[in-house]
Design a protein around this nucleic acid. Structure first.
Length: 815
DNA sequence: GGAAAGAACGTTTTT
DNA sequence: CGTTCTTTCC
């Protein structure tokens, strides 16, 4: 443990000056005044509101470089947290380009990656085996399903997916089963399952993503010596994408930064949080924008800097983004500006069908490439939901335009890779029942559901893992099981002490995986992936990925820093900074024993925390297709945003409450601000969704864009556009039907919707104003189905958007 | 134990 | 409509 008196106080770093020094350093050249101010902030907590395209990452990395270069911080004193591995990598890359310093001593990584380091280092204190395995979302779900079967949970009433969501949600809020308020029978049952799930994970030595965060939070909270060590160590904590932090991550940061005494937070280092409340688009998975306000209050933040200069887009695009987002209430307030001219207008296209919309996109894309010389990789098509990509893909395919779809399965999530990893995990930890069950009969070796039931019963009776219960199963089934276990056990023996490559190769052979896929018709790709796994392991060992982890824990058994880089001795700004290899063994070090994590365990950790990228291959010149969410942080010369329709964007499931609608608007804001030069928005009157044709009105977001920045490529028709814009109250939208039909859809070429196969008996049309006895006046947004099944989506100013069965609801058309 | 037919479901997603 | 999971049947 860490006796307090053994903490050698690090040499007091010089205080950052109260006023910024002249930007003589080349580091600070080309920064605008706001950026410069942020980079050279004096000691103390700060919130940087960084608008889209305002040089956020640049500020963050330059800040770190500046602190180091001027001796205000040592590499060991830096903690920089991001959300994605990509962002962490980029920070490291940029930093190494700025300073000839080894970035190894710094803790730069994702929340989960850093939590993993903490837990490996202090696994005993945290109550975990040193080589605990990490469950990804898939693994977690199968663990829950298994639990439900074992305890006869009614999966109708408690769908495992929902339970997984519930458990993850609890952990994100920092709640253990005992902390969850449970007033009704249903929630009590859920909490009970949560409790059982935790016991199961603990027994098997596995942790899920939420547990990684929660467990390390508790480690800090409950262990004064550990907490004190890190608090003293990290003089500068920097957080990227702060608007995306959930409650638990905020609590974690607070523990890292200081202690609450008498209700007031006393901190050691300085926390710099960088974020943009307007780009908060992950509330649905627990992100709390409110953390920004809480941070300002609880940390008594005095320095708030807004980065509002945008270096990305022409002003027509930026004005559109600004105008749109101004319709949100509860903003911290920020307005992007640019020095560039207006640029091209934002083009708006209305298509009769989703097919036609896609065709229009393809035509425009071809022109952009042929006439304007844009690279295809600089053109992106963004959409709200993945289902929309299909039509666009086929249109691009038919026109032989190369394209690439982002998202989908990543490398380490592929079934064959997960199987291989399961075998490897069993080598590390035979009691990992999730992995056991995954591969016990894959490739098939005559172990069926019946046998496994018997085995699971036996294991439960004996209170042991499946591995240990195998001998309790009699007969031929038992023999088969015994064969499997023996194979894994022998493999473990044989590969002891061997290098990673040879371990994996032997596993692939002994498990029969390769042989199995060789016999399969579609197996060639899978075998290729398995070979790629060997390569991935190889490069993990040799490349810097493992090198970075190698110094994950630079402290010895007394808690003193192990890092003997010049940095930890206090940095001489004039001394040449060395990039010498660090002393000491490779691997993550145990804080108590000095033991290092085996390369295999480290690789498995890497596989769980970094699912591999699903990026387009560099060098490939293809049009980029992705969801708006996936586009965050990226930028393109030309951006198409399709499906700009009520029900899609804003999405049905989000448009009913104000918070949901505001998040949709932020999503649209993110989408718009991806574009550098050209922005194209489109919507379609009809769209095939779930096998049914839907009739959609164009999105209300069009009415929130500045008319002067837009160019309508098709005549505007009645719809949301003809209503008075809302007067602040999001719920009051659309205000009323007055003037809504000044334009007669019939006067234009496009057919009225819905098409008149047989005149619908209800006499409703999209866009009509209707009256409901209970909800009052509303506007028809969409109509689905025919006859008795027909239903209409109606927006009522005071009751929100509702789907009404026309055979039941009493609707009258308002003249 | 495995292939084939049927049912269910369909916002966004990183770790 | 298309995918994925489940059930069914051999």
């Amino acid at each position: 443990m860490f006796p307090h008196d053994l903490f050698a106080e690090p040499p007091a770093p010089a205080e950052p000056p109260q006023s910024a020094p002249p930007s003589a350093s080349p580091l600070l050249a080309h920064l605008n005044p706001e950026q410069l101010a942020a980079v050279t902030l004096p000691r103390g907590h700060a919130l940087i509101l960084a608008g889209a395209g305002s040089g956020k990452t640049r500020v963050l990395t330059t800040r770190i470089a500046w602190l180091l270069q001027n001796g205000y911080a040592t590499p060991g004193g830096i903690l920089a947290v991001t959300f994605t591995n990509k962002a962490a990598k980029e920070m490291v890359t940029r930093l190494s380009a700025m300073l000839p310093i080894q970035v190894r001593g710094m803790w730069i990584g994702t929340f989960h990656g850093l939590c993993n380091r903490l837990l490996r280092a202090h696994h005993k204190t945290a109550g975990l085996p040193q080589s605990f395995q990490i469950l990804d979302t898939q693994d977690q779900l199968s663990a829950i399903k298994r639990l439900c079967k074992q305890f006869n949970v009614d999966e109708e009433r408690f769908p495992p997916k929902q339970l997984a969501y519930f458990i993850a949600g609890c952990k994100e809020e920092g709640m253990r089963p005992g902390d969850v308020p449970a007033h009704d029978a249903d929630s009590r049952k859920k909490v009970e399952i949560y409790q059982l799930y935790e016991e199961q994970c603990q027994r098997e030595g596995v942790v899920d993503f939420g547990e990684l965060m929660l467990r390390s939070y508790e480690l800090l909270r409950d262990n004064d010596a550990v907490r004190a060590h890190y608090q003293r160590r990290f003089a500068h904590i920097l957080v990227d994408e702060f608007q995306d932090t959930n409650r638990l991550q905020y609590l974690w940061l607070k523990q890292m930064a200081g202690d609450v005494v008498d209700g007031r937070l006393h901190t050691y280092g300085s926390v710099m949080a960088v974020g943009d409340d307007d780009q908060s688009i992950y509330a649905f998975r627990g992100a709390r924008v409110g953390n920004m306000a809480d941070f300002v209050r609880e940390f008594a933040v005095e320095q708030q800097i807004k980065l509002e200069q945008n270096y990305r887009s022409y002003s027509n695009i930026l004005d559109s983004a600004n105008a749109l987002i101004s319709h949100n209430s509860r903003r911290l307030g920020k307005n992007l500006r640019t020095n560039q001219g207006p640029g091209e207008p934002v083009r708006v296209y209305e298509a009769p069908t989703d097919l036609a919309e896609a065709q229009w996109m393809v035509d425009e894309i071809k022109q952009l490439v042929r006439n304007d010389g844009h690279a295809r990789r600089e053109i992106a098509v963004l959409y709200r939901s993945n289902a929309q990509s299909r039509v666009i893909e086929s249109a691009l395919f038919n026109a032989s335009v190369p394209y690439r779809v982002y998202g989908g399965l990543r490398f380490f999530e592929r079934a064959e890779i997960k199987h291989a990893l399961a075998y490897l995990r069993l080598l590390e930890n035979p009691h990992d029942d999730t992995s056991f069950l995954r591969v016990v009969n894959f490739p098939p070796r005559g172990i069926g559901a019946r046998t496994l039931e018997v085995l699971q019963d036996a294991a439960r009776q004996a209170g042991c893992s499946l591995h240990d219960a195998v001998s309790a199963v009699p007969g031929k089934a038992g023999a088969n099981l015994g064969g499997f276990v023996a194979m894994v056990d022998v493999l473990r023996e044989q590969t002891q002490g061997q290098n990673l490559r040879s371990i994996i190769e032997q596993m692939l052979h002994a498990s029969g995986l390769v042989e199995h896929y060789r016999a399969e018709k579609e197996g060639a790709d899978r075998i290729e992936n398995l070979e790629e796994l060997v390569n991935a392991a190889e490069s993990f060992v040799t490349q810097e990925g493992f090198g970075r982890d190698a110094v994950a824990l630079p402290i010895d058994e007394h808690g003193a820093p192990l890092t003997q880089s010049p940095a930890s001795q206090g940095l001489d700004p004039n001394a040449p900074l060395l990039d010498a290899p660090l002393p000491g063994p490779a691997g993550i070090v145990d804080a108590d024993t000095g033991e290092t994590l085996s390369p295999l365990a480290a690789f498995l950790t890497h596989a769980a925390l970094e699912a591999g990228d699903n990026q387009a291959q560099a060098g490939e010149d293809a049009v980029q297709l992705m969801t708006v969410h996936a586009s965050k942080g990226l930028e393109f010369d030309c951006v198409f945003i399709g499906g700009m329709e009520e029900g899609l964007f804003p999405h049905d499931n989000a448009a009913s409450d104000r918070d949901g609608l505001e998040e949709e608007r932020r999503l649209m804001y993110v989408a718009i601000t991806r574009a550098r030069q050209r922005l194209y928005l489109s919507h379609s009157q009809t769209r095939l969704l779930h096998g049914q044709t839907r009739y959609n009105v164009r999105s209300r977001f069009f009415d929130e864009l500045p008319e002067g920045a837009l160019k309508w490529l098709t005549p505007r028709q009645g719809g949301f556009g003809s209503f008075a814009p809302d007067s602040g109250a999001a719920r009051g939208y659309p205000a009323k039907a007055a003037g809504g039909f000044g334009f007669k859809p019939e006067t234009f070429a496009s057919p009225p919707v819905p098409p008149q196969k047989a005149a619908p008996s209800h006499g409703l049309r999209v866009g009509l104003a209707v009256f409901h006895t209970k909800f009052g006046e509303g506007k028809v947004l969409a109509i689905e189905g025919t006859g008795d099944d027909a239903r209409a989506q109606v927006n009522f100013p005071r009751h929100g958007t509702k789907w009404l069965a026309l055979s039941v609801a009493k609707l009258t058309v308002v003249e």
